[in-house]
Design a protein around this nucleic acid. Structure first.
Lengths: 260, 260
DNA sequence: TTTGTAATATTGTGTGACAACTTTGAAGCT
DNA sequence: AGCTTCAAAGTTGTCACACAATATTACAAA
């Protein structure tokens, strides 16, 4: 592909708004090293005429690249490709959600994290944090008694534990994974089907984690959290049936949840 | 916070361009459930007058939200909060890079992951994958002999191990963390200063991991990988001095690396 | 050589206009 | 009433132009 000073009127991809297409083109140009890290992009006016669109469109496209950390703009100077395009955000492949196997693999990641989090929390927790965890347990029971599926309260429970480990990055990461799973799993049916036994089993697993936190026993906490995740994976597998997943991917508007 | 139809002129945060600030405000409004999933945002004109900025600015802000998948716009209809703003990407807070403590916390996350990865890889590795790991070790030595800092080869080494654990999500996540650390750490000086002993120490740690993989001993692999991370953290701490980090944050153009 | 200043280029922001599209609701018909 | 048709209003997509704020460059002066 030609370097910019000589580049012709760029061919834009088909779908979407002009800003979408220009954005795609720019990403492609940057990734294909037509614009190495540190170099300056042509001026907005210049790009506008090259692409055959207005400056407004160029600005919207550049704005997106900025928000994704690929470029940075300096008023009066220009727009520059960022070194390495590092700090780009993390996301799983879209088609990750499409297979049951992928979902199980995500659970495996979460297992590793939850285990470590529980172990750290057992050592570092303060009394106040332990109290917050216990209160979260109580809220799960209350919510379930009220007829809720308890998923929201369950999220809070795991979040409280992560907070007790003293490392905010764990909190953010686990929450992210939780969301990914929640999006990937349409579990309403499963909860309906096995609500009672499930609730009891989950309760038991939660209790084991809390006990380890109380005793400040990191190994017991790690084991309990890992077991909890393994069981969750098994519960997931019990409703295997890729069909449900695929249906959700095609129609994301359905309600979904994930059993903690 | 008031719902939109009655919301007052929003107070904008301080830093950055107007689009940045409006974008932050909108994210906050959405995340705080002022705009539940599926609801429509006010019209661009309306938001412009409420925020006290031009429609141009609003459009740029909305454009970013679109690119991050938080909202979707339909011409003629409006901008809608996407069902479950899930699938939104993961990123650490910007100011994570600003303190040595934060960096250590990121290393702690990576420690949890690398430990689990090594344990899984010890069990699941194929012969071919083990060979790939060994080859990566060799390449590190070669690169270092050539005078390189060996960071690139080190990345490959850890990547090969992650691949051997059979879960692609671990590969992606660890690579992401590596990039975050690489961005956050300006280590050139440290490598220059302690190159020789460091290389030897790292070599030794790598060897321990590989040995555990050969023996297919998950617990030994986990321990070795965790130790490797702990040592990396110590090496990091040895050049503590938040000054270097802060200097980098102010001037991201400097070269950076991270010692695996 | 160094300094100060003006000219110029570039991004940031505002304003107005029109096109393309969706939604709404009223008019008219059965 | 219930249905269809269609015009009107509202909303996003795009364009054009103007000016402000800032950075870079060129050049003259000391």
């Amino acid at each position: 592909m030609a370097l910019f000073p000589e580049f012709k009127v760029e061919r834009l991809t088909n779908g979407g708004t002009l800003a979408d297409r220009v954005c795609d083109s720019l990403i492609q140009l940057i990734n294909s090293d037509d614009f190495p890290a540190g170099t300056r992009l042509p001026s907005e006016m210049s790009m506008a005429s090259r692409f055959g669109v207005s400056r407004t469109v160029i600005r919207e496209a550049v704005s997106r690249l900025k928000s994704e950390g690929m470029v940075e703009s300096r008023q009066g100077s220009g727009v520059f490709v960022r070194k390495g395009n590092l700090d780009s955000p993390f996301r799983f492949d879209r088609n990750v959600m499409a297979s049951m196997q992928s979902v199980r693999q995500v659970v495996e990641v979460r297992q590793a994290l939850e285990g470590e989090i529980a172990a750290l929390a057992a050592v570092r927790r303060t009394k106040a944090q332990l109290a917050a965890v216990k209160q979260a347990v109580k809220r799960i029971d209350e919510d379930v008694a009220k007829g809720s599926d308890g998923v929201d309260a369950d999220i809070v429970f795991h979040r409280r534990i992560a907070e007790a480990c003293g490392n905010p990055h764990f909190v953010a990461l686990v929450e992210f994974l939780f969301n990914v799973l929640r999006r990937a799993t349409q579990i309403t049916r499963a909860i309906e089907a096995t609500k009672v036994e499930l609730a009891q089993q989950v309760r038991e697993e939660h209790r084991a984690i809390v006990e380890a936190l109380v005793a400040q026993d990191p190994e017991a906490a790690r084991a309990a959290a890992r077991l909890h995740m393994e069981r969750a994976c098994a519960r997931l597998a019990s409703l295997d049936d890729d069909g449900a997943l695929r249906r959700f991917v095609d129609n994301p508007s359905e309600e979904i949840a994930f059993p903690g």
